[in-house]
Design a protein around this nucleic acid. Structure first.
Lengths: 121, 121
DNA sequence: GCCATATTCAACCGTCTGGTTGACGATTGA
DNA sequence: TCAATCGTCAACCAGACGGTTGAATATGGC
């Protein structure tokens, strides 16, 4: 049950969930803390976390009454391998990654702030 | 307008569309030929191709009355870079990629044949 | 024991998705 | 010219998705 490509890619398709993953990249977090910067209900974030967990992208561990979420980077490997079959991408480019994170978290499609202009499509 | 991560990942989230990409990896194809192995209507496949094209994953070129579809591997680079930020994956593993293609095309979730058992989730 | 905190559950809602069918426009070829 | 082929469009449908709210279920602290 290594979570199908279906579940992994569709989990990654949502900007809120990608933002959550980016947050967890810095540190493990409790559900409430994950939800804090978003302008949506805790229940909504909780559902997103379930989806990420079902995809194997994060793990949820209950300690006391707090559930800690941590990144589970292995799950992305399958998807990454699949993608790399389509054209040889230059070896890991962390600078480019940083730029994407910036765009996603700050400028763009603000999962963090509502009512922000999206890139016109 | 290099097609957002949103559109790329949600395009990749559908097994039919991933199968189409895998087919195009071998050769450029006309729409009708893409549709042939699938047990769904031509119109459905046509819609999938539009989604893939909007995501920048393929290009459609009309020659005569035939529309040729070709892979556009660059579009995956952004998504791939994003993913590689989460954990250093071992450098391109084409064997693993072949295995995934096998599973997707043959065994699994049959986008090619209907009514086939899915992995119980 | 009791109240506050942390998280999920359940029901609901509007919108998007993936499929169908049938009609339509464009192009080819006889 | 006329029929066949290629592909999309339009309308429709069932089900999934992303969000809401309010109640329910732990757990912790006093």
């Amino acid at each position: 049950m290594p979570a199908s490509l279906d579940t992994v890619f569709s989990a990654l398709a949502d900007p809120t969930r990608r933002a959550i993953l980016a947050m967890l990249l810095e540190d493990d977090m409790a559900v409430t803390d994950v939800a804090e910067p978003f302008s949506m209900s805790l229940a909504a974030i909780s559902k997103h976390l379930v989806i990420l967990a079902d995809a194997g992208l994060i793990a949820r561990e209950k300690r006391g009454r707090v559930i800690w979420c941590k990144l589970e980077p292995d799950a992305m490997r399958a998807a990454s391998v699949w993608m790399q079959g389509f054209g040889q991408f230059e070896p890991v480019d962390l600078d480019a990654f940083e730029r994407f994170l910036q765009e996603e978290l700050a400028e763009g499609n603000g999962p963090l702030q509502k009512d922000q202009g999206l890139d016109p499509e």
